[in-house]
């Protein structure tokens, strides 16, 4: 079966229902849709195991922070790839920053382990069921999650910086 956005979406919606698969768009040739925390684990497992789809390669995942969106401050983006059909798919899950909990994918893809640790490190997203959810890139005693938009980029210890100049 040739995978197209239509038939893949149809198949997924047939499986998981309209309520769980929303907002399907196609921004750059890769179909993107939203889902929710309850569905995401089953969905990705289904995509991997389905004989027809074989979307069985987790390309990447990352967190995104939208401070302006109420109750949808955080987003987790999953990008999957079917090597067999050369078909890419992007799934997003939005959730409030007050409750940054996501199910882990480590039982489906081994590669999810560090990606989730990275998301935890950067955004403080807690993946339930992750075997070893600790910071991966930053020092363990760091007190905040640096990729959240409210935190500054600059190292505050820098001395030679002259702020008087225009620009940024």
């Amino acid at each position: 079966m040739e995978l197209t956005n239509e038939n893949v979406l149809g198949k997924i919606i047939a499986q998981f229902g309209e309520d769980n698969i929303t907002n399907a768009v196609n921004p750059d040739g890769i179909m993107t849709f939203d889902t929710n925390r309850q569905t995401i684990h089953e969905l990705i497992k289904y995509l991997r195991d389905d004989e027809e789809l074989q979307i069985s390669f987790l390309t990447t995942m990352c967190g995104i922070h939208y401070p302006e969106q109420k109750d949808k401050e955080l987003c987790m983006m999953y990008q999957l790839h079917s090597l067999r059909h050369n078909y890419r798919l992007r799934i997003k899950v939005y959730f409030p920053i007050s409750d940054p909990v996501m199910p882990t994918l480590t039982d489906i893809y081994a590669t999810a382990n560090w990606m989730e640790r990275e998301a935890y490190d950067f955004y403080g997203i807690i993946f339930t069921g992750h075997p070893n959810l600790i910071r991966i890139l930053n020092v363990e005693d760091m007190e905040y999650h640096p990729m959240l938009k409210q935190y500054p980029l600059e190292d505050q210890t820098r001395e030679d910086k002259v702020n008087t100049f225009f620009g940024r």
Partner: peptide
């Protein structure tokens, strides 16, 4: 993976770094 909100900078730029991903193995 680039998200642009129309500003002068990317809103989010995520790099899929192959090393990061396979070094887990």
């Amino acid at each position: 993976y680039l998200i642009s909100d129309g500003g002068r900078t990317p809103y989010r730029l995520h790099f899929r770094r192959p090393c990061f991903i396979y070094y887990q193995a």
